[in-house]
Design a binder for these strands. Sequence first.
DNA 1: GCATTAACACGTA
DNA 2: TACGTGTTAATGC
Length: 245
Amino acid sequence: MNRDIPLYQRRRDPTGSELAGIPWLKLLSPDEHRNAAGHLTVADAQSGELVCRVGRPVTYWFGVIEGLLKMSTDSADGGTMTYAGLPPGGWFGEGTALKRESYRYNIQALRKSVVAGLPVDTFHWLLDHSIGFNRFVMNQLNERLGQFIAAREIDRMNNPDMRVARSLASLFNPVLYPGVGEVLRITQQELAYLVGLSRQRVNEALTALEAQRMIRVEYGGLRILDLAALRSRVLPPGQVASAHG
DNA sequence: GCATTAACACGTA
DNA sequence: TACGTGTTAATGC
């Protein structure tokens, strides 16, 4: 329907329930809240649509209201390298917004999603006025640093079940993605793209994790049963870890 | 041996 | 109907 109109030209005002799903709004004072909410816009991204592109000057600090995005870059060999999946409640691009530089990643919708944007000037205004907002951003940066360290760990694991477990633990991170809750809406194909495995192998891994009561596989999504176990997933007996330092 | 692609039947939104 | 899931068979490193 809106296929030919760029995402930024399809902005609209956020609904009440969309505003309610923005975690940092509740940390603001009434006047800060008013200013922020007044500048927030949202847009509906279709599956496959780019939210922001490498090299474009920063315009917004983005958040996921609904759906699923992926963060990636195009690598030299023509393929794409995916760094993270972004489920509901996730906010990203603050590093770029802070420096007022250009985006360093492509952000693409893996499925129909609702994306929120806070203009970079309003972002800076909040940094200048709100302690609560500063705390949120600092917490956000810290948490994600931990997640990227974990991502390097995941990349060095050759056991697919472990890779799936740890990737799921990242997606279920309640600090970075408070909109996810108990059930993560993700298809096994989407998860396969994020983890870098085939859908069939992901399906096998999910079945194994379900057998160990860490998750429950549901139609179009996954229910978290034991986040700590997913995070600390150890190799089954008899297998040797081959993560090299 | 293990993961991948291709292909299929089946169930669900 | 279109999509997501679970499974099998053939292929490749």
